[in-house]
Amino acid sequence: MGFSTMILGFFFIFFDFNFGKINILPDLIGYIFIYFAAAKVISKMGNRYFAIFKKTCLLLIFLNALDMFIKYSSFLDGVINNPETIQGRVFVVLFTITYLSMMVYMFFHLTKGIEMAAEELDNKSLAEKARKVFRLFSIYTMSIAAVNLIAIIVFKQPFPTISIDGLSAFLLIIAVMAALIYVFVQVCSLLNRAEIAFSEAKKTIEF
């Protein structure tokens, strides 16, 4: 159906592994996976929410491509996005708000599409799961937005840094990683359940 492919895409989006300035799991690749997965879902399920979800993925591909171009540009990186300058902070704040808002908008239409399709199948548990995961994802994303904006506006840093060490730092990192993994697992659970439910429904109709 395409939902299982989205899991791979979200893995790229949730997790970052960096070697210096190079992210070996770029969000751009994740959104490309999700975009083509969305196209596959749309080809099998006529749902207006999935159509908007696909279009939003395309916009996020563009935003991520722009972000990568700036970061790896020798004449733009550290200039247009420099948090030490007023114009740099304005750019980073606007970009962060736009990007994270688009993420929530995209995820809303994904979960709403799953919810609507589940209700058509009278699968109330899947519909409720979609609503719960959207709320969880929204809280997670808004938390990221708040932390990033505080780092940019108050501390003039492009991303949050930890100024504590020892046991406190270790526990904080563990807590953040646990929250990240929990949200990711819930997203994967929803997509996996959607893949199974809608694939079985399609087989029943074809039979």
Rank of each mutant, 00 (worst) to 15 (best):
L121P: 00
T85F: 03
V183E: 02
V104K: 02
I164S: 10
Y72M: 02
E128M: 08
L110D: 05
L136D: 06
M142L: 14
I152E: 01
I61Q: 13
N82G: 06
A175M: 10
T111E: 05
T98D: 07
L190E: 02
I52E: 12
V104F: 02
R131V: 13
S189W: 01
I164Y: 03
L100I: 09
I153G: 03
N81F: 12
R135D: 08
R48T: 05
V176F: 07
L59Q: 01
L190K: 00
V93K: 01
F69E: 11
T96C: 05
I70F: 14
F108R: 08
V176K: 01
V133Y: 02
I144M: 11
E120N: 12
R48A: 01
I181N: 08
S125D: 13
R89W: 03
R48K: 06
Q87V: 07
S138W: 05
F155A: 15
L191T: 02
F159C: 01
K71H: 13
Y72K: 08
F159M: 13
V187D: 04
A65Y: 09
F184Y: 03
S138K: 11
L66T: 11
Q87R: 08
F134V: 11
K156L: 08
F134M: 15
V154A: 14
V92A: 02
C57G: 03
F95A: 02
V90F: 08
K129S: 13
A151K: 12
S143E: 15
P158K: 06
L126I: 12
I150Y: 11
F95Q: 04
E84I: 09
F184Q: 00
K132M: 07
T96E: 15
E120G: 12
T111K: 01
D77W: 15
I181V: 07
A65I: 13
V154N: 09
K132N: 14
A127H: 06
A178S: 10
D122W: 04
I61D: 15
K112P: 00
P158T: 08
A118P: 03
F50E: 06
F155L: 15
I174C: 10
K124R: 06
F170V: 07
R135W: 14
A51K: 04
Y105C: 07
N148T: 13
A146C: 07
F107G: 02
F50I: 00
I164C: 06
Q87K: 09
A65V: 11
M68V: 05
F75N: 12
F184I: 00
L180N: 00
I174Q: 12
I153N: 04
L149C: 12
K156V: 03
A118M: 04
L59H: 01
N82L: 10
I61G: 06
K54G: 03
L171P: 02
L126E: 07
I150C: 09
F184H: 00
L191F: 00
S163H: 07
L110M: 10
P160S: 11
